[in-house]
Amino acid sequence: MSNNDTVYINQKSFKEKLVWLLDHFKREWQIYVMLAPMIIWFLVFLYKPMYGLQIAFKDYSIFRGIEASPWVGLEHFNDLFSNSQFLRAIKNTFLISFYSLIFGFPVPILLALMFNEIINAVFKRSAQTIVYLPHFISTVIIAGIVITAFSPSAGIVNTVLSWFGLDSVYFLTKAEWFRPIFIGSGIWQEAGFSSIIFLAAIAGVNPSLYESAVVDGASRWQMMWKITLPSILPTIIIMLIIRIGNLMEVGFELIILLYQPATYETADVINTYIYRQGLQSGQYDLAAAAGFFNAVVAFVLVMAANSISKRFSRTSLW
């Protein structure tokens, strides 16, 4: 077969594919119309800004614009990695994320398992409503509640400490207290709402599995460990992959609202660093480089988590 023949076949199959694709769009256009808002959202807010990523490799000036700004290669990355504040931000991001994952990820699963064991319907609904509520409170209000609760003068935490004859502590100015307070308030705000997805997974477990186990003589505890938990394991793994993918995305609004220079040592994360460098100091190119680094690490993390999960548990996002 000559080269020309190969080209001819490829062209033909491409045309066939194109015809099929047009036919497909014609037939299923309603589905694509429904998809359109999401695709547009992705294009406008996630893909178009990628064009601006190049300023991470340029000496960017808002007056010259992206095109006219000169290339500087990896200079901003060199600056970042020789800057102790950025290295500290990387360390803090990882530590806060890691502790959140370790302490925060199991809580919604435990909550869902506990809700599932509550027999009284009224008590179950009330308990669920109470733990879901904090999710609907604005981050600013959450920060307000945290600041008030840990206030050295009237805060409930210090009031309780005073009952035991202990001195007041100004927790939010102590670097060593920032992470526990931030992670704890995050769990308080989101654990209930996050448990919904696990409750939905539990609701999907075939009831005859439990009936069969009852006839076999399994206790409620055994059913929870041997049926419920393994049955929702695929959901747990999917959620874990998503969570690992978001490991670099620490809820920085709450950090900005809670941290202060005294706690930067443990509280300053990559996103707050980017915010300060980019928006407050006007170093857009340096902030873009930091953001780019953040995105690359997140991408590697999610790919790695997915392939590990695929290999060991037969469950994966794609």
Partner: peptide
């Protein structure tokens, strides 16, 4: 209790784990 009745049941949808 079901476990002490010495019965075994086969379900319509198999109920396999």
């Amino acid at each position: 209790a079901p476990k002490d009745r010495d019965v075994a049941m086969v379900f319509q949808n198999y109920a396999l784990y």
